[in-house]
């Protein structure tokens, strides 16, 4: 087995194991921390696929920003740090059946559609920051600009939503 295959096995096992722990752990904060491991392993997979820029963006945005935000939200909602009971809903069996069927369908479709497909992981990296920048600003400028407006809207929305009730009451009596 090649080095890439071994690394993929390692990263994949890490990602699946820590994702299972995110879903099943009884401590809420641990769930956020296991999410970091999953996202890091996925960033490793992106590197294996030659998507260097996407891997670094994954680390920056997800591990750096999203998980920190989630931890802040856990603190703001006074989530207990200890082991808790009653974290899951009662429909565990139905949920497992639904998820199992979804997984079965996805795996079947993927294997049926791309069974013999090969990727060459030997050639040099295609997703470097230079080539990504070229592609974005040559072919994807409009979506990129729309995205900046979306981010601004999300920012304004979050500020409006998280303002206290007292201050909004003054302005709209």
């Amino acid at each position: 087995m090649s080095v890439v295959g071994l690394l993929f096995l390692l990263m994949g096992a890490m990602a699946v194991g820590s994702a299972l722990l995110v879903v099943t752990t009884a401590r809420l904060v641990h769930s956020a921390l296991w999410l970091v491991v999953t996202l890091g392993a996925l960033a490793g997979c992106y590197l294996l696929l030659g998507a260097e820029f996407v891997a670094w963006v994954q680390i920056l945005i997800y591990v750096g920003a999203v998980v920190v935000l989630l931890l802040f939200a856990l603190m703001l909602t006074r989530a207990p740090t200890g082991v808790q009971t009653g974290l899951t809903t009662g429909n565990r069996v139905v949920a497992a059946a639904t998820a199992g069927v979804v997984g079965l369908v996805l795996v079947t479709v993927v294997v049926a559609g791309f069974g013999g497909a090969r990727v060459s992981v030997d050639e040099e990296s295609v997703g470097s920051a230079t080539s990504m920048g070229d592609a974005i600003f040559r072919h994807w400028v409009l979506p990129f600009e729309v995205l900046s407006v979306l981010l601004l809207a999300a920012l304004v929305g979050a500020i409006v939503l998280s303002r206290g009730r007292a201050s909004s009451g003054e302005e709209t009596p």
């Binding site: 699946v16 809903t89 429909n91 949920a95 998820a99």
Partner: peptide, 13 residues
């Protein structure tokens, strides 16, 4: 991973 995520969405409170 998608399956695990879907399972989590369905069971967590």
């Amino acid at each position: 991973l998608f399956t695990i995520g879907a399972f989590g969405v369905l069971i967590r409170r």
